[in-house]
Design a protein around this nucleic acid. Structure first.
Lengths: 225, 225
DNA sequence: GGGGAGCTTAAAAATTGCTTAAAATAATGA
DNA sequence: TCATTATTTTAAGCAATTTTTAAGCTCCCC
């Protein structure tokens, strides 16, 4: 597994590189955004770790360019704490997850593993914990008992589970599930999250949809941080 | 049940299509290998009938490509030469059975039924709860009393029961039972569901066809979740 | 305690499915 | 061949469900 770290502070970059190489990752480092973008586009990485505050080209811009080039590589970004707005922008720009500085190395490792695991799942039916959904037959099972969902409820759950362990921003949800591409102050998402939670709870799936305040929602695979 | 015939001789192709449609199959024809392969990969058939000697792409090659794409659809091939070598090659390429030209139509029909039966590992007659249908004689029984159905009614019920405990979407039903492959705002399905429900209810089968709103219908085996 | 984001509920609006009747098409028999 | 019958399709009104809107409430974080 090959990673690229785009980070201007040599101390942090070196610390990450050493720690990740101990975990048998192949690690490259770029010390500014422009170099990082070039490397990301030329080489084939399994994951990018991008600091938000870097010289030459901001992290958010690197992220956008990578996506614009059609590259689906998972992106994790590092942000200084207390900047919710940054998080929203970052996820909207196409990042998959974020982690606030300062962070535990263990947490970073766990999030990296989640992104890499998601990469090689191409089974026909999708699952999260006890929950299984089949996009072909439009069926949802909690263990062995079936849950009846309306089409929109199903589409929302499918999107969340396809992106499980990744943060789904409100704007991405409204784009992918409702196909609305302009800003709007609708609260359909809230309503449908309520619908889903009620049905899933009643079926014994617990509350697997977590709210990330100011950003969106995430469905996590139990047993992984 | 939807079949694809890949056969270049219009006489044979037409003869097969007519005969099979009388048996309530939805039949498509391709007159060369390349077209046939495209159709087989794009659409969802329940069985393919492929002549070995066809232009543009040989039958054996079509067969290989279909399997290479991971499609497990049953394949029956027609061969003129009864050289053992051809047969071996054909079966190695992923075909399920073969029949030598000239053949009796009845024999072809029997072999088709074998392949379709294998699909669900049932014996010759299909059932759901108290209901039994026989695709060979086109009879339907609710317990011991027979229900008279029109051809389309029978085809619809057969499709639903062959796929019992699975959701049959409207688009799949319209493709497999009516052989319509483009978007249309017809409401034939609704009408026929009403017809079927009325006859089944009158015969004492209850309402075994459940609606999945926004998606389609499902026939469930009672007592199994 | 105040502001904002999300949650919940109820009701309006939109969509989808059901039913019926009648028209179009196909099959049957004199 | 033509008339009769059966089957299939279309269309429209009605019923039920789904989706959206809107408003008040709750909870979290300052």
């Amino acid at each position: 597994m090959r990673l690229l770290i785009i980070e201007d502070e040599p101390g942090i970059a070196g610390f990450l590189k050493d720690g990740l190489e101990e975990e048998y990752f192949a690690v490259d480092i770029a010390y500014d955004g422009k170099t990082g973008l070039d490397m990301a586009l030329i080489n084939e990485y399994d994951l990018l770790i991008i600091d938000w505050m870097i010289p030459a080209l901001s992290g958010i811009e690197v992220c956008r360019q990578v996506r614009k080039a059609g590259n689906p590589v998972p992106i994790l970004f590092l942000t200084a704490k207390d900047t919710l707005e940054d998080v929203v922008f970052g996820l909207d720009a196409g990042a998959n997850d974020y982690i606030k500085k300062p962070f535990e190395f263990e947490e970073l490792l766990a999030r990296i593993r989640v992104q890499l695991r998601n990469k090689n799942q191409n089974d026909d039916s999708l699952s999260a914990g006890i929950l299984t959904i089949n996009p072909v037959t439009h069926q949802v099972f909690c263990g062995s008992n079936e849950i009846t969902l309306t089409p929109k409820e199903f589409a929302l759950l499918e999107y969340l589970i396809r992106n499980k362990d990744r943060v789904c921003t409100r704007s991405r949800i409204i784009e992918h599930v409702w196909d609305i591409h302009f800003d709007s102050d609708t609260s359909v998402i809230d309503v449908y999250i309520t619908f889903l939670r009620r049905k899933l709870e009643a079926a014994g799936a617990g509350n697997i949809i977590q709210t990330i305040r100011g950003v969106g929602y995430i469905v996590r695979e139990p047993g992984v941080s």
